[in-house]
Design a protein around this nucleic acid. Structure first.
Lengths: 137, 137
DNA sequence: TGTTGTACCCTTACCCCAGAGGGTACAAAT
DNA sequence: ATTTGTACCCTCTGGGGTAAGGGTACAACA
């Protein structure tokens, strides 16, 4: 199992899991918000702090925080630290990845029904993604 | 340049081109049909024959033929050989890849506007494509 | 026997990407 | 001086895809 706990929040990470670490962090924090373990305005451990507690890389935690802030689950206040967003509870139940996946899924299904090969679909996808790199990780 | 010509049809292939060989073949044949150089019912060189003439692998030609037949540009009659499809002219102007690409493009654009990262889109795409391998190349 | 398309097997090389780690640096504030 | 988030640089591992080639085999014919 090898999970390590962060004292401040109830956050654990499983290195053995196929689920990416940053995704586990996002999931954990959202879950903590939804269960009320974390309330709006609560302070989150700093990136370096949490990374150290969980024995993961700063960038991994930073990535999770970045995504969480984009989804308005947390709020970063520069040098003052990171806090739970006022609307965190509502926003935590919103899964953008799921939305994206179903959107993509529909398009793919349509292509398949049109007779397109998986290979062709992949190629087309690659071409579209290649043409503008919006940037961002 | 290094292009080689097939006597029977006006088909050339450029090894230096970044365009895949099989795609060049498809394009060439469609062009030949659209320009009237190949008419419905005309016999095409056999897979092995054309592969030999152009100095490419059998499988490469076979792949092009397979896609062309799926799109009803050509017609394979088993041991008798391959022929230009009766509706070849109409079907040659239909580019499934382009259709697929625009369909995928729309979905991607929607995801981007929803705030999704390119990375997230790729991940979602990968997940969808992974779940059912329809098979086919 | 030879040709047709087709279906398998396996191999090569190339490219792109995700995930994760390591390091250094910076402005803004305390 | 230290902490904060953030932005760069670099690395490595692994996975999965295409494209193309090489080979062998098959049933259906002529």
């Amino acid at each position: 199992m090898q999970s390590q706990q962060a004292q401040r929040a109830q956050i654990a990470v499983d290195i053995e899991s196929p689920e990416p670490l940053f995704a586990q962090l996002i999931e954990q924090i959202k879950k903590a918000v939804l269960s009320g373990q974390l309330g709006p305005g609560d302070a989150l451990p700093s990136i370096r702090q949490l990374a150290n507690d969980l024995n993961v890389n700063n960038k991994t935690v930073a990535k999770a925080y970045r995504l969480l802030e984009r989804d308005s689950v947390i709020q970063t206040k520069g040098y003052r630290g990171t806090f739970v967003h006022p609307d965190a509870v509502v926003n935590s139940s919103f899964d953008l990845s799921a939305r994206v996946q179903s959107s993509i899924s529909e398009a793919i299904e349509a292509c398949r029904e049109a007779g397109a090969t998986d290979s062709e679909i992949r190629i087309a996808f690659g071409h579209v993604m290649q043409n503008r790199t919006t940037g961002g990780d």
